[in-house]
Structures are given as structure tokens and as C-alpha cells.
Design a protein around this nucleic acid. Structure first.
Lengths: 146, 146
DNA sequence: TTATATGCAAAAGCTTTGCATGGGT
DNA sequence: ACCCATGCAAAGCTTTTGCATATAA
């Protein structure tokens, strides 16, 4: 995990969730801290609930919705139809490679890909507000495996 | 819709689904024909069921699963978590722009984007088996709107 | 004290499965 | 006649919602 990103994100969340008429409860604190620690790549509500046995499903879903609304997390729906979340941070921007063998997502970033997406948007006459890329494949052996 | 793609796809489906121990029932015929006609871009099971009041949900889901297994359709999970399908055809390859205003998907293809994705895969040492791109944005007025 | 965050339980919605029946071949 | 495809109904799962309670401010 990236401490700089985690800390900045926690600050943003604190700001967004400390207005008048807002309170910090146990569930909220626990979920936010978990996301900062482990939410930099695709965490589902069930995975969160498993790690936080004291939090209720309703609180977790409600909070995730709230963070989504505030733009503090991104949400994706995987091949299994389950929603997965990760913290939103410009410096943490990345896409996902799904390993054909293990099925697990591997984050990656690529400048050329970003440029290509911007070029597409320009060609289509679209002001870009978001984009996601998923690539699937099998990693070629690179000789470092055991 | 593209007749050439629809016809070729129908042929492929017929071949794949006519082996020994397979039969064509009413539901299968109706769903396959509907997909060929209107399934070139993101159709959900519910939309199919609405258009085919005589087909049962179980038949529709079972058939879509079967086509998915055979690689004859692609499946996506949209922001609402609902599975949407479209026919798989190399010549019909495209990605999706989600209009921020209407929420509806607009298909597009872009050679530069494909090249960028291949470059990423090469850099990551991955043999590509699939990829999806979704971009979101607001279409700029081009002066042709009413 | 007061209103918000929480948890429980029930409900909702999409999708899957079991099983008896109908219909292709 | 065989047995696959279908439809119905029930179940499964994730996610949402209603409501009473606990709790932060």
C-alpha cells in the first residue's frame, strides 16, 4: 500500500464527512480506515464485512454508497456481478489486468493508454468524465518464477 | 444493425448448437434470433424477456450462459450490476461510451486504442485474451442538434 | 438533549436450480 | 420412443430499506 495516497485520502474523507449534521460512528471509522489501508485495489462489501465482524451489512453498504456519491471511491462490477470498490485518488489512477489463471486483478498504469483514451474522446466529441479499462490474459513466464 | 454480422453469427450459433444431443426449442430459436437482430450492443436478460413474453426466465438465462460458455456472446456488468450481453463477432468488435446525460451506451471502435492496449499487454508480459474499455462523458454539441 | 449513525430483520431484484412436462428428432 | 429443452416455482445471493436503538456532539 501507498502511505502517501492513504493519508491524503483519509484527510479528504475527514473533510467531506465532518460537516454539520454528520457524526463519526464506529462502523464508519472502521470502514474508512480499512479502505485507506487495503482499499487501493478492488474490495467488495463482503470482503469488508469479513474483515470487520462488528460492522453490519447495512452500514457498510450505506457508507460505500455515500463515499461513491462524494466521489471518494470508485465502484466496479466484476464478472461475478459483485460490486468492488477502491479509493479514488488522482495519483493512484490505474486499470486492471485480470489474470486468466488465478482470476485475481492486478493493477497497472500506462501513459500511452491514457493518451489513446483522450484521443478517442476528442475524436468522438466527448468531454471525458471517467474511463475504465480491463484487460484479461495469461502472464508469460519471465523466468523469475520458482 | 449489421446484416453481415448478424448472418454470420447465426451461422456460427447454428453450428455450435446442432451437435448430437442438442435440439432447437422455441425459446432458443426466439432468443438467438432476437440477439442476431438487436443484440449487437448490450441487451439484458430482462430486456430480452420483455421482448419475448413467451420465453421463461430460466430458459433465457440458461441459453445466455450456454452462449457465453461457447464464446458466442460477451457479457458485461453495468453500473447497475445487471448483466448485459452482446453477440461476439471479431468484425463487430467495439467498446462503449456511456453518455453522462442519458446513461445509454454508445458503441465505438478505435484502432489507436486497440494498439495502445496491445502495447500495454506486451509491456506487462501478458498474452491478451480479452479486453474491455468503458469511457464516460458528455457529448459536446456539434451544432446538429435541434 | 437531539439528531445522526448503527444494527437487525425484512424486502427487493437479479439470477440460478430442481423437477415435472412438452416437444424435436 | 427417447431424451433434450422448456416453464414454473422455489431458492440463493447481493444489495437496499424500514425502523427501533445506541451514541456522538
Amino acid at each position: 500500500m501507498d502511505h502517501a495516497i492513504a493519508d491524503r485520502w483519509l484527510t479528504q474523507v475527514d473533510e467531506a464527512l465532518s460537516g454539520p449534521g454528520r457524526r463519526a460512528g464506529a462502523a464508519r471509522t472502521a470502514v474508512v480506515e480499512l479502505l485507506a489501508r487495503e482499499g487501493q485495489c478492488l474490495l467488495s462489501a463482503h470482503e469488508i464485512l469479513r474483515r470487520l465482524p462488528n460492522a453490519s451489512a447495512s452500514s457498510v453498504y450505506r457508507l460505500l454508497d455515500e463515499l461513491l456519491e462524494l466521489g471518494l471511491v470508485h465502484r466496479f462490477h466484476g464478472d461475478d456481478g459483485v460490486a468492488r470498490y477502491e479509493i479514488a485518488d488522482p495519483d493512484g489512477h490505474h486499470h486492471h489486468l485480470i489474470d486468466d489463471v488465478t482470476g485475481s486483478p492486478i493493477p497497472f498504469a500506462d501513459h500511452g493508454l491514457e493518451l489513446a483514451i483522450e484521443a478517442v474522446a476528442a475524436r468522438l466529441g466527448v468531454r471525458l468524465t471517467g474511463h475504465e479499462v480491463v484487460i484479461r490474459g495469461k502472464r508469460r513466464s519471465n523466468g523469475t518464477e520458482s
